[in-house]
């Protein structure tokens, strides 16, 4: 049983009217988004839809051209970037890599490696890690800071299918253990849906948002990802979710983002 997100308190990160222009192209336009404590929020969208840019803007890595991002004071962010493999000319062990960051009190490198399932690799060189091991190492470095928010940009890139489902199970576990909010970026809509509280479908603006089931049948989502994918996805969700009372409902009024206090559900 996972702990559902806590929306009684202040959001961890809150953005209104967010707009980002990169190289003359408007990548993000008028985005309103909030991340709540203990919430797993997934950003889906096609390649180039602005997912990574949105995460960077929320994390303070990119200054927005319009709108404002408010982060809770003293917010600690753990960020796992996309394609982060350093150059092969850099000789660096897993331990060296973890020591680049300031560990939070009570956290230690050996412990987090065990937690993400790659214990015993501390002396391994980064260049000798597989794609899956490297993604877990990034995750280990992020949680070493005991973050309030975990930002994972395409954490499944270069990970095989078996590894992907392991990794997706790990994310809610980490959320439960550290009570952090999670922002997950993915273009792989199939696997993501199982371990998420809320989905935002992005295409330079917010197409639709809400519970995975409702987003999967939303007309904008369907037109973006194709009817067939949306259909298999909706079926997939229905088979795996038993305690939800909004089967098949489209995203209507009353189902705006941030308003899901009545959605009790269980991701086994």
């Amino acid at each position: 049983m996972t702990v559902s997100s806590d929306k009684t308190s202040e959001p961890l990160i809150h953005a209104t009217g967010l707009g980002v222009t990169l190289g003359g192209t408007k990548v993000l336009n008028n985005i309103d988004i909030s991340l709540w404590p203990r919430e797993i929020l997934t950003l889906v969208g096609l390649n180039g839809s602005g997912k990574s840019t949105l995460v960077k803007a929320l994390g303070g890595l990119i200054m927005p051209d319009e709108g404002a991002v408010t982060r809770r004071e003293g917010l600690r962010i753990g960020y796992c970037p996309q394609h982060a493999h350093p150059d092969n000319t850099l000789p660096m062990s897993v331990m060296d890599f973890l020591q680049l960051t300031q560990a939070a009190p009570g956290m230690d490198a050996i412990g987090v490696l065990e937690e993400v399932g790659i214990s015993g690799l501390e002396n391994r060189q980064l260049s000798a890690l597989s794609g899956g091991e490297y993604q877990r190492l990034l995750l280990a470095r992020a949680i070493l800071r005991k973050p309030d928010v975990l930002m994972l940009d395409e954490p499944m890139a270069g990970v095989d299918v078996a590894g992907q489902s392991d990794l997706y199970q790990l994310i809610p576990q980490l959320r439960d253990r550290y009570g952090c909010g999670v922002i997950l970026v993915s273009h792989d809509i199939h696997v993501v849906m199982a371990a998420t509280d809320r989905v935002i479908c992005l295409n330079h603006h917010v197409c639709c948002s809400g519970h995975p089931e409702s987003v999967a049948v939303h007309p904008e989502f369907v037109s973006l990802f194709g009817a067939q994918i949306a259909e298999t996805l909706a079926v997939y969700k229905h088979q795996h979710d038993h305690s939800h009372d909004l089967h098949g409902d489209t995203l209507g009024e009353g189902h705006e983002q941030g308003d899901h206090s009545y959605c009790e559900h269980d991701h086994a």
């Binding site: 960077k56 994390g59 303070g60 890595l61 962010i77 753990g78 960020y79 796992c80 970037p81 982060a84 350093p86 850099l90 660096m92 890599f97 680049l100 960051t101 300031q102 990034l138 470095r141 800071r145 930002m151």
Partner: peptide, 16 residues
């Protein structure tokens, strides 16, 4: 340390 961290990954270093 900041030089090395930003060399390995600038975005991670900035967040940290």
């Amino acid at each position: 340390r900041p030089l090395l961290s930003s060399t390995v990954n600038a975005d991670m270093a900035a967040v940290e």
